[in-house]
Nucleic acid binder design. Structure first.
Lengths: 141, 141
DNA sequence: TCTATATTTAGAATCGTTCTAAAATCAGGC
DNA sequence: GCCTGATTTTAGAACGATTCTAAATATAGA
């Protein structure tokens, strides 16, 4: 699978949203694969490149990116929400029930929701969450 | 499909956890199908039967039931966590992106996670989340 | 009934997030 | 290059949800 275009790259192309210095360091926090950060982790990473950035700006930016469809909020299990920059490609998630770590995965097979089970909903997407224990948490049990 | 045993019924059988009057009214809040309540909704329903029950007890009880595996916390989309009493039967969820309502459903088909995508995890469960718009929210768009 | 343990409770404390209003920055027109 | 209005950032206050604390109550078992 070709590596997806990065969040910063996608944002650079947008004309409806200014990519300021602060917004760029927030977006750059999401570089890499399997990156699903909490707001606090984004602040940590952003401060690394721009120590004076404020918490309010991090929250503002995360909320704007969600509204633009450039970040998907993930609420897996316990704890605060995490943000997934991989919005361009359909994918599934593997979450560790021990430590909460999340990997992007692609399930094999196909599922669909029969009409009788839709309760009148218009279904627009689906995602499968696999739950388990990562090597480290498996050892600690 | 046979209706699953209710939460209260399951709790009655436990010997490791006292089913006090307060805990019973909390558990009774989850009677019915497609019931996925927030803590606040549980408090409302519990007060109906026991007006003097405290918020702290509701939170205590919800957390204990999650630890016992009798409730599954759901974090669908935005908003506070909801609790699902249907832990005995594998099932999937259909969530409305407009209002956040959740239905229990059973997907048709089969998915699995290839070994190469497991990153060393021991996979113990999976769940598919279908996202869409309920009849009411579809109309409001 | 007595005693030790478990449970409940009100209210304070904490935590994550949003709000507010002032300061800083920026784009476009001169 | 400088104004000017609009946008963005910011510190700190405010807020809402949840957890904590420590005292009161209820319970099980002797």
């Amino acid at each position: 699978m070709a590596p997806p275009e990065s969040l910063v790259e996608r944002l650079r192309r947008r004309t409806d949203w200014r990519l300021t210095a602060q917004r760029r360091v927030v977006a750059e926090a999401f570089e890499g694969a399997h990156v699903h950060l909490t707001a606090e982790e984004v602040l940590d990473r952003a401060r690394h490149r721009m120590p004076e950035i404020s918490l309010a700006t991090v929250y503002n930016t995360l909320n704007e990116l969600v509204a633009l469809g450039e970040l998907q909020p993930l609420q897996s299990g316990r704890g605060r929400p995490r943000y997934d920059p991989n919005t361009a490609q359909r994918h599934d998630h593997l979450v560790c029930l021990g430590c909460g770590a999340i990997h992007d995965v692609h399930a094999r097979g196909r599922v669909e929701l029969p009409q009788a089970e839709r309760f009148g909903h218009e279904v627009v997407a689906h995602e499968t969450i696999f739950k388990g224990y990562c090597p480290r948490c498996r050892r600690d049990r």
